[in-house]
Design a protein around this nucleic acid. Structure first.
Length: 156
DNA sequence: GCCAACGTTGGC
DNA sequence: GCCAACGTTGGC
């Protein structure tokens, strides 16, 4: 069981969008960073918990909870030459890029803004604070608990 | 819209 | 295998 933070631009795909999926799951595709890819391919497991984070907006924040519904599998968008995530080097034998499925879990009573995260001395080691560009980030159990407390959610 | 951070690419 | 150039991310 692992904890994660997944970043998305809400104008592209938001927590509400995930909630409104008919089965509440969505392939998390288009990740094109090797470190993030490795997390998706090698570590993410069904049942892992996910902090859903909205980036690139005036008030970036963790806005909800999700979970991994399917572990890493080849990202087929890499082989679609008409899509924006096309990678000519990807093939069936060597997919290069991977995705997972995420499932909507629950909203937060109160969103946890990046500003509040930065102000909390217990959270300064989060990649979000130090390496903000990584789009798939591991979260420790302790960080998970702290953020859920800040969000007004009971228990991990 | 600016720009710092930083990951990736490609020439050598 | 180094490193400069380049492209992208994302906070502000």
């Amino acid at each position: 069981m692992n904890y994660w933070l997944f970043k998305t631009e809400p104008g592209c795909f938001s927590f509400e969008d995930l909630k409104n999926r008919p089965d509440s799951t969505e392939p998390w595709d288009g990740v094109r960073n090797f470190q993030a890819r490795n997390f998706l391919r090698d570590t993410a497991q069904v049942g892992d918990r996910v902090l859903f984070y909205h980036s690139n907006i005036p008030e970036p924040a963790v806005v909800g909870l999700a979970e991994i519904a399917r572990a890493g599998y080849p990202d087929s968008t890499a082989r679609n030459p008409h899509g924006e995530h096309f990678d000519p080097k990807a093939s069936l034998e060597n997919p290069i890029w991977y995705m997972v499925d995420v499932r909507y879990s629950e909203p937060l009573r109160k969103i946890v803004t990046l500003e509040r995260i930065k102000q909390n001395p217990l959270l300064v080691d989060m990649p979000l604070v130090k390496r903000s560009r990584l789009s798939i980030q591991p979260v420790t159990e302790n960080e998970w608990r702290i953020i859920l407390t800040m969000a007004g959610v009971d228990g991990p």
